[in-house]
Design a protein around this nucleic acid. Sequence first.
DNA 1: TGTTATATTCTACCAAGGTAATTAATTCGA
DNA 2: TCGAATTAATTACCTTGGTAGAATATAACA
Lengths: 155, 155
Amino acid sequence: MKIDDEIKAHFMTPQHRALVNIRYTSNYLGNLQNGFMSKFDLSMPQFNILRILRGAKGAINVNNVKDRMVEKSPNTTRLMDKLVDKNLVERWRCTEDRRVVYIQLTEEGQSLLKEIDQSIELLTITNINLSDEEAQTLSDLLDKIRIEPSSHIDL
Amino acid sequence: MKIDDEIKAHFMTPQHRALVNIRYTSNYLGNLQNGFMSKFDLSMPQFNILRILRGAKGAINVNNVKDRMVEKSPNTTRLMDKLVDKNLVERWRCTEDRRVVYIQLTEEGQSLLKEIDQSIELLTITNINLSDEEAQTLSDLLDKIRIEPSSHIDL
DNA sequence: TGTTATATTCTACCAAGGTAATTAATTCGA
DNA sequence: TCGAATTAATTACCTTGGTAGAATATAACA
């Protein structure tokens, strides 16, 4: 369904339509993702941390995880708290630089990731219904939006 | 900056890249919007409710507001609670159908909207840095994604 | 050395979003 | 007409996200 119908709106410009559409579609996709992950008692952000840790192939510090996340907030610490509670991740303080905290997947975390990988529905949350070319066009347009706030005016 | 650099990721497919990019860019735009609205002691969702009420040109019920929002959750009630607290909106129960609750902008709410309209930076949150054609292409691609979960398989 | 600046992580506090269940009112149908 | 189903709105409970600031440790430098 077109965004105009989804939220019964009349947009004055294609730019405004696109902007609302990004928010709406992101929300839609986020709900799909969380719905899928809930089968594994994880939220999507939690799953993302697990994947980042797997990609790191060993222990990395909190800041490195944060840099790889969509949201760069203190939330990373809180998400990791929950992963530690579930025994999916272990965390310890660096002895050379005592400000730094390292984290790493546990055996249990690795098994869970494997299990999730084998789920056929994983595609639902890493794939979308576009051709390669369309998907790349979409990414390029989104990258362009973020270059600078549009209509930015120095006052 | 390209999404791959923003979150230091290596995507295996353009579809996955696009998916993450939608989430990331939506987040980026949401933060811009909230930053702008905070000058008026509003959140963006609160502002959206006010705009919906203005568009309605009179009293409408809670469900009608919800239908026009990006998120269709019980959150609408809670957002309206806050607008009532700020005297920007008034709310009363329908006498014919006592299940229904009507809401409407107050004078104060209308003034605030006018004030916000006059802010030159309002464009920051209703416009994006794309041509008309690019913006429409973007919207079309996003609409297409929502048609159906990709790779949906009935098991 | 001692003082200041910076870096890393974490905590507190608040707003928002989601699911599920509840309340209250209305409608539908045997 | 009475009871079941439906509808509208709300509430409870939980997770996430954001800003600001605190705690702790390290670096930089006069």
